[in-house]
Each structure stands twice: as C-alpha cells, then as structure tokens.
Nucleic acid binder design. Structure first.
Lengths: 201, 201
DNA sequence: CGATGAAGTTTACTGCGTAAACATTTAGTC
DNA sequence: GACTAAATGTTTACGCAGTAAACTTCATCG
C-alpha cells in the first residue's frame, strides 16, 4: 500500500502535483497568462525546472489541470445561482453568475473557455462547467422544438457578454462622453432579463 | 518628396512593413497563433530577424496591425449583410455574417476580439469592426429606453456564439449520439432569429 | 540488505523577444 | 558629383521559455 504523504522530505516533495496546480493558478490570477510558465510554477513550488515533467506531460497538461479546477468552481456557482423559485429568475441569476465569474477571474475564464489548450480537460466541452445546469433550466422554459436553439442562444448570450466584459470591449464609444459602461453585473441582469422576457412560452 | 518604392533592391526591402503584415496574417491563418512570431514573419519576408523592429516597436504592434486588417474586413462583411429590406432580417444577416467571419478565420477572429493585445489597434474597441453598423440596426428596432441593453445583448449573442463555435465548444454532449452539431451558419440564423423575434417593439 | 522504480536534478538544445552596436543604402545639400 | 544624415537591415548577445536525456536520491518491497 502506498501512503500519499503530504510531508516534504528534502529531496522528494511529496505533493508536487497539487502544489504545482495551486501555484499555477495563483500565478495565472495574479500575474496573467503570460506569467504562467512551467518553469515559474516549478520555481514557485521550490523545485527544479524539470520536476513538473514527472507529473505533467507538457505545459498544456498543467493548464488543463488548472482549467479543471475552474470548471468545478463555475459549476458550483451556477448551481448556487439556480436555487430560485421562479424558473425565469433562476435563469437570469445563472447568467449573472456566469458573467460575474468571468469578471472576477478573467485569466482563468479565458483559459477555461478561450482557445482550447488540450483535450486533456475532462470538462472542457459542452458537458462540463455546469452546461447541464444552464441547459436544463432553459429546456424547462421553451417548447421542445425550439429547445436546442434556446439553449445555445442562452449560453451564447452570457458567454458573449462575459467575453466582451473580460476583454474590456464594453467601454469606449457608447453613451456618455467617455462611455462609463455599466457594471458587468448589472449589464448581465439587464441583458438576460431581456432575453428571458422575449422567450416564447 | 519621397517615393514609396515597391521594388526591392537587395539590402533594402522597399516594402517591408506591408510584407510583414501580410506574412504574419498568412502565418496566423495557416498555422495558428503559436506559429506567429516576429522571427517567423521576418523569415517569411526574407529578411533578418531584427528587421521588423524598424517598423514595429514590438510583437504586439505587429499583431495590432494584423488585427486592424481584420477589423476592416469584418466591417465590410457586416455592411454587406446589412443591405436587406426588412430591418429584422438585416439584423439576422449581420449575426450570420459575424459568426461566419469567425468560423472562416478563427485565428484572426481570436486575435481581434480575444484578449487585447495592445492599445495600438485604432479599431479594437467598441467603435471599430463595424460595431456601429450593428448598433444602428438594433437601435432602429427597439424603444429608446431599452436600446443600450438590446445593443449589448445582440452583440453578446453573436459574439458568444462565434466564440463557442470557433473554440469548438458546440460539439459533444448535445443531441445526437456523438452530437453532430449543426453548422454554425444555421445555428447563427436560428439563434439570432429567436432573439429578434423576442425583441419588444 | 539489495534491487527497483518513482520523483527530482543537471545539463543541453532550440526558438523566442528584445537591446545594442554596426553596416548599407537612399535622399538631400553644397 | 562628393558629403552627410537619416532610414533601413544585419550581427551579436542576453535571458527566458519548453523540452529531451542522462544522472541522482530515496522509499518500498522482496
């Protein structure tokens, strides 16, 4: 039997894999993607530059592991937001939660839902990250023949708003002189409300 | 007066800046972002590795120049799509054009509308890339008090769908056994139609 | 106790972005 | 036409990145 020792014993770290993922996530969120390198993660974990290769095939594999953390988090948030009496209200709250997640953790959000980094993240596609929570909620709101379209539309709407907000494309040439855009939270609520209101029963 | 000689004369290239942008765009679209380096662009232009620095402050500046090409292209496509009698139809066509652009030139689309690369691209924000075309069309469809919301919603919707399609997140756990997702074109039409239909007059 | 294999280290190679110093050409002036 | 300055390319060099290969340490099992 093997004990997954959490101690470090000088030479052997004991818990490198998890430490690397944690370090990488911190690096990502505090200094951006461009600061996230295998070597930097190794440094942060107090280990030699090549050590990560004992736990990850390559950089993409580490990124995938970090992304997976994010999928679980996002899923939790959506599930939390979905606890509303009114189904339409629940959908709106999911949208707000999605956008809020993106704005609070932009680099992680981009890693998770931007250009695919590897096929190694189990939850990277439609099935993960709480997609089912969103789609179930939408499915309960529209007739079966428009169900698929409505689900994709709902996801597209909040995903698009999240991307635009995260990438700073909602400020500039809008209303006011210097276009002080509304907080993404509020925007998410308005936009998803508009969408939900227009949804055919 | 100065003649912008298009000839190359051995040592002096004569037209390096434009050649670099063209080469970079080709590299980007044929081999992806990761293949697009200053050095690769220089190689493609048949010039030394440092030559690009005479025309671009850094890599970000070159990327910004490439992106600007894309903004003009996208703008043209939206303008073209907007030539429809029925204003709602015109909006739908704009959405389809937006998504089609993204799917046909995914790497360029990501460069243009993904994580901002520099503030050097004149059209990178809301004001460029045909944002005004979309927003004008939407503005004509809804009452003034919901105008701003509707504009952002419309952009979010098509932008989100474009991102999801480009990043391959519309396949997988959907309808069919292996989820043969509908063509993004068709999806775009369905989704934007649904949105337009639900828009309050 | 000694072998085995997992986990870490060192060394090395290539490509990248960038800075600095140098070389070549073109343009503009006497 | 020769002289000079500015623009444009080139060479050299540095540090950092990802990764491959060979070596080292150590915990475990027979």
């Amino acid at each position: 039997m093997f004990t997954v020792s959490t101690e470090k014993s000088g030479y052997h770290h004991g818990n490198l894999r998890e430490t690397l993922v944690r370090t990488a996530l911190t690096l990502l969120e505090e200094s951006g993607v461009e600061a996230l390198s295998l070597r930097a993660a190794a440094r942060g974990a107090g280990v030699s530059a090549m050590a990560p290769y004992r736990h990850f095939a390559d950089k993409a594999a580490l990124l995938a592991a970090v992304a997976d953390q994010g999928y679980a988090d996002l899923r939790d948030r959506l599930a939390q937001a979905d606890t509303q009496a009114d189904p339409r209200q629940a959908l709106v709250e999911q949208g707000v939660a999605y956008v809020r997640f993106a704005c609070e953790r932009p680099a992680l959000f981009r890693l998770m839902l931007g250009a695919p980094v590897a096929d190694l993240a189990p939850n990277s596609k439609k099935g993960g990250g709480g997609y089912d929570i969103l789609s179930t909620r939408v499915a309960g709101l529209v007739a079966e023949d428009r169900r698929d379209t409505a689900i994709i539309a709902a996801w597209s709407l909040v995903h698009g708003l999240a991307c635009l907000a995260v990438d700073g494309r909602l400020h500039g040439a809008h209303g006011g002189p210097q276009g002080e855009a509304a907080a993404p939270d509020a925007l998410a609520r308005q936009v998803t409300s508009l969408f939900v209101a227009g949804l055919p029963a």
